[in-house]
């Protein structure tokens, strides 16, 4: 088998946060990503889902070495990424890019579309001269569906969907092998969402891109991913091929998440018996002992409070972190 594009092994990221004030001032450790491992192959899409605060964005940033990993290892085509200096990272940055949730906020308002899209080339591929750069920018703009006469416009002159296209063009301009998409469509209107999803899928197929697609919308993740990872309080509770995880979710949290998604079908929606989870995600500063999901879990037992379940391989590429799933 070929070397995976990306290998993530027991990755941990924690942040020091201050709690209290005045005399009660203290700092505590917040474990945002708490031991995550996965592989990603060339041209593959891994969907990452979870509720707010589960660490999915931190995971994305740690994979790209944008936040320092506390421990664990990220390997890019067999080469260790974590701990590299910014200078040593530079050649790798050409191959891994990111697009963000808020399309307008992630573009510099004082730069034109052309300047924004050309910036990665200037920074990471200075050997390319201005003429070639302009041609390259024109190519990617056409590729993502922007008009050639829009090069000199500023971000505020574009709609949200078009801004997201500029963000995608900026990520594509260096011909990367991996694009991390951090909630790329959640700020967009329904009719625009579909355009961007189709664009990402076309690009992936044509350019053999690998995508890490982070979202809280399970419908979108099902549509675009080949494999899906479900996160809860910094840990992966289930990783499985797309069809397996949606047809037969194993972890109780995955089951609850999928059950909670309303279907755009009034008759089926009325006949469905939802058993929504009680409670909300606990603060990551104060996670429950053992299995972090146990205080909301319908099948929790005494063992769950003392023993943290590890991700086990169940066959068929399904990995689950629960004591009671066979």
């Amino acid at each position: 088998m070929t070397t995976p594009l990306l290998q993530v092994n027991d990755l941990r990221v924690s942040f020091c946060v201050s709690t209290g004030s005045g005399l009660g001032y203290a700092t505590r450790n917040l474990k945002a990503v708490d031991g995550i491992s996965f592989d990603l192959h060339v041209g593959e899409t891994l969907g990452v889902v979870g509720e707010s605060g589960c660490g999915k964005s931190t995971l994305a940033r740690a994979v790209l070495n944008l936040v320092p990993a506390g421990s664990g290892r990220v390997m890019w085509l067999g080469q260790a990424v974590s701990g590299l200096t910014e200078a040593a990272m530079r050649p790798l940055r050409k191959q891994m890019q990111i697009i963000f949730q808020d399309p307008l906020a992630s573009l510099d308002p004082r730069m034109t579309a052309e300047q924004i899209i050309a910036e990665p080339l200037k920074a990471l591929a200075p050997e390319i001269d201005a003429t070639q750069r302009r041609r390259r920018v024109a190519d990617v703009m056409a590729r993502v569906g922007l008009q050639a006469d829009q090069v000199h416009r500023y971000p505020h002159e574009f709609s949200g969907g078009q801004c997201q296209r500029i963000g995608i063009a900026r990520a594509l301009v260096l011909n990367p092998k991996l694009i991390v998409c951090d909630e790329p469509v959640s700020a967009l209107d329904v009719s625009i969402q579909a355009q961007i999803i189709n664009l990402l899928q076309d690009l992936q197929r044509d350019l053999d891109l690998a995508l890490i697609f982070i979202a809280h919308d399970l419908n979108v993740v099902r549509h675009i991913s080949q494999r899906v990872m479900v996160m809860y309080l910094g840990r992966a509770v289930e990783i499985a091929p797309r069809d397996a995880i949606y047809a037969q979710p194993r972890h109780p949290y995955t089951r609850a998440l999928i059950d909670a998604v309303p279907l755009p079908d009034p008759q089926r929606e009325r006949s469905r018996s939802h058993t929504p989870l009680t409670g909300e995600v606990p603060s990551p500063l104060d996670p429950p002992s053992g299995c972090a999901f146990r205080n909301r879990c319908p099948i929790a037992a005494a063992r769950c409070a003392t023993e943290t379940p590890v991700l086990r391989m169940l066959g068929g590429g399904v990995q689950v972190a629960c004591h009671f799933v066979e």
């Binding site: 099902r222 549509h223 279907l263």
Partner: peptide, 22 residues
């Protein structure tokens, strides 16, 4: 609107229908 949302009960692998423009 109805056909452009991905849904949990759709057949996977199909392209989303889109409304062009903004």
């Amino acid at each position: 609107l109805l056909t452009s949302v991905p849904r949990l009960d759709e057949i996977t692998g199909e392209r989303l229908a889109t409304i062009p423009g903004n």
